[in-house]
Nucleic acid binder design. Structure first.
Lengths: 187, 187
DNA sequence: AGAAAAACTTAACAAATGATAAAAAACGAA
DNA sequence: TTCGTTTTTTATCATTTGTTAAGTTTTTCT
């Protein structure tokens, strides 16, 4: 998915603003297993996935939560770095070799402050992420792990082939062993 | 909390834009138990709480999830109406007699399209809600209901006095009976 | 104040999930 | 391919949370 499609997906931008915007991006590649965002750092860049898949997760004590998976067109971002310029709670690792579009938060802030079309793009971007976050929250509060797993299968059927069971389980908020048991029961 | 404080809390706006912005608000009052946002409607307005407390919840089948409580300075909003102009999944009821500031989404869209300062205010607003949503999600995935209850007590000590146990339980994702048992165990 | 309604607690049993361990299957590198 | 590693399954037992029901306390209304 190229950068034009990625930006347009969020919000249309007029041609001259879009040109200015796209000039700030750089294409980069990283290998599988690369830890691209670290929770102990204020991250200076955000990324969009051209090709590949990533996992956002958070560590506390000895346990780990998978917050999200990102596929082509999705964003790799430390929210607390991007929004508050603070150390985040997210780590993001690449689950495959990835091709990414990179832009610095400094460039973004500058574009937001000077171009109303891009400012509204930034607003739409946050709003769409917010909708996703709330839907995710509601579906995790409702129903059993079995229901959530079946819903995930329906919504992201390809994900199960690309990602290990343990990570899916951590995304669903259960242990890998529980998920294996659930799979045995629904077939 | 007045409308100046509420708007500034999110993002500073220059004086003339702020004046234009505030002119679009209207003060309204509603009694306790009023259902101000309904999930079966596209809502045309959003509200900020001057005085009082509200609860956002979602119904599916026969169960109900409390998504959030809103106190003074917080927003009463159907995200899907505001962002996508679609019917939402949220109901919002007032838990006390409330004084509110009201603005139409149409006015907001108009302000966003024409004033870069207000567009960036809208961006910051969505971003801050996003941070809250993600923190909430992470803390609900981690640890036991007991830990989440203790965390809530620390973060919002006044809430427990203003809101019934059943609603707190539904916020924590457990039943009222379970929460009562938890309270009996931690004292 | 007194009656009715709502909120909260307690208890017993059921269901879902966690923890641990061991075995089987799938995957990857030499 | 083959050996070693990782992933997945299966099983057992412990813990947490849900369900139902009954009883107590608190709040609300007249």
């Amino acid at each position: 998915m190229n950068i034009y499609q990625i930006l347009d997906k969020t919000h249309p931008i007029n041609a001259s603003s879009k040109h200015k915007f796209i000039e700030c991006f750089e294409e980069v590649s990283f290998p599988k297993n690369h830890l691209i965002i670290r929770s102990d750092k204020v991250e200076k860049d955000i990324f969009f996935i051209k090709k590949g898949i990533a996992r956002t997760f958070s560590n506390f004590d000895d346990s780990e939560v998978t917050i999200a998976f990102g596929e082509e067109g999705d964003t790799i971002i430390s929210l607390k770095s991007y929004i508050l310029n603070q150390k985040g709670y997210e780590n993001i690792e690449l689950l495959e070799d990835c091709e990414l579009y990179k832009i610095s938060t400094a460039s973004l802030q500058n574009l937001f402050a000077t171009d109303i079309d891009i400012a509204n793009w930034g607003r739409k971007f946050a709003e769409q992420e917010l909708i996703k976050a709330e839907q995710r929250f509601i579906s995790n509060q409702l129903g059993t792990a079995t229901e959530r797993y079946i819903e995930l299968l329906k919504k992201h059927p390809t994900l199960i082939q690309r990602v290990s069971l343990g990570l899916i389980a951590s995304y669903l908020g259960i242990t890998q062993v529980s998920l294996s048991r659930i799979r045995a029961n629904i077939t």
